[in-house]
Amino acid sequence: MGERVRIRASMPPGHIRAPAYLRGKTGVIERSLGAFGNPEQLAYGHAADKKQLYRVRFTMAELWGEGAEAPNDTVDAEIYDHWLEKV
């Protein structure tokens, strides 16, 4: 926990649960949530690989830069490990 990670910046089409506003942004792993079926396979009726899911915390300063409403406020989101890059 506390590990810094970056969300992959790629933008493939299709059903993806890593929100666009987080892609390319760096956050900290808040907790590990266990393994869940990959929604990118489930969405199309395929058998799904289990993917580790993490809750990642981002500061508003990281997400929105100078325009952040309050830089130290945070956003947590659940991200599957194939969308995470080590920083």
Partner: peptide
């Protein structure tokens, strides 16, 4: 089908 299928 799954909730992801619904969303897709």
């Amino acid at each position: 089908f799954t909730v992801d299928g619904l969303r897709r």
